[in-house]
Design a protein around this nucleic acid. Structure first.
Lengths: 207, 207
DNA sequence: TCGCGCTTGTGAATTCGTTCACAAACTAGC
DNA sequence: GCTAGTTTGTGAACGAATTCACAAGCGCGA
């Protein structure tokens, strides 16, 4: 398959969100123009994005909302449940554990991990907190698909190495550190500090 | 000034982090090659990124760590304190309020806001929670530079409109919604759901 | 002081992503 | 069935970002 740009996938996520909204409102069809307006892009961009995966629309009419919804869910791999573990049961880990958006889209949190003995054993927002020492054996047994790292930067790389070695192929990193992984492992980062610095830059360098 | 790409600014943030680390370790100089290796990019990219802002290196030698640190902080506008308000005192707002990275880099959280009367008045991680109804008058008085939105998607656009109208020019949005603002307002988004869907896509479409 | 090894800074070339523009395909009305 | 009015799908043009490649500058040792 032709390599798909990251920016394209991100936009597909955005379109998906609008389509869910349109479906709720009972709309039958939607045009690329409409999707573009809501998503802050152009109609040509919307059509090009979708064209990488097939022809989903009808000329003169637009896209069927339920059909495009199904297609996008299929493309994004949301037709199944993904098993997620959260590593780090601090404030960020807790905020993630209770986040409803996870479950809604098929991301099932199966466990959280921490080194702190006070936290281990207790539930965190309905999720069982386990000892970090069990990480490898648990991964071998439970076969989670995705690991979310909500730990301090210092040991983020070390923990990434551990989950990768245990067989995890997808990681979402909340630590403000640049992590390195083998090519067959996808690592996405959510870096608040970086976004804030981007705002600082924008505020400073306005013409 | 020539328009600087967003990707460039993000990389500057990454370089800054490494330089801080290098300074701690007492290293005097660093080469573009070294920065590139750690940052997962190429040396040419590093040099080009920096060249937009001036010549900071010495040929044959590399970059002076303290000099480049100062230059990057200057470029990113981190030479001053930025005043930040957090809108939404839920789990995410709380996680943000206690996040040390903010303070460390000169982002000072001056207040949090919520509509829930149970939360208003109480401190949240050392930050005062105020009534959302005061938002406009407080902004006029306290003149915060940045608003962080940690609220549900449904009213994210409405709250954005309010802070923009009150004079805020930089917003960090944690709600999984596509927000629209005037051109002179910079909105950055941290969208967990989108990142997860990116992982789902990567796991699904591996060749 | 000269030459060698190293590293920057930057035009040029290239790659990648977005926008343009239009033929093709569809609906609806007559 | 024909025409007018839409909207898709997609090559081609464009623009932006990355990579290449090399001259210029610096330090060091002879």
């Amino acid at each position: 398959m032709k390599r798909i740009a990251d920016s394209t996938v991100r936009r597909l996520s955005i379109y998906l969100r609008f389509l869910e909204e349109f479906e709720e409102r009972g709309l039958a069809t939607v045009s690329s123009e409409e999707l573009a307006r809501r998503g802050g892009t152009t109609s040509a961009q919307v059509r090009k994005d979708l064209s990488f995966f097939g022809s989903f629309g009808k000329r003169g009419l637009g896209y069927s909302v339920p059909e495009l919804l199904t297609a996008l869910r299929e493309i994004l791999g949301l037709g199944r449940e993904w098993r997620v573990i959260i590593v780090g049961a601090g404030k960020i880990g807790a905020a993630l554990a209770q986040y409803r958006g996870f479950r809604q889209r098929g991301f099932q949190i199966i466990a959280a991990y921490d080194t702190n003995p006070e936290k281990v054993g207790r539930p965190l927002e309905g999720v069982q907190v386990r000892d970090m020492a069990q990480l490898e054996t648990d991964i071998a047994r439970d076969r989670p698909d995705i690991a979310v790292l909500a730990i301090p930067s210092d040991n983020a790389q070390a923990v990434l190495d551990r989950v990768v070695k245990a067989g995890i192929k997808a990681v979402l990193n909340f630590a403000p550190a640049q992590l390195h992984a083998p090519a067959d492992v996808t690592v996405k980062a959510v870096n608040m500090a970086m976004e804030l610095e981007g705002l600082s830059f924008a505020l400073t360098n306005r013409e």
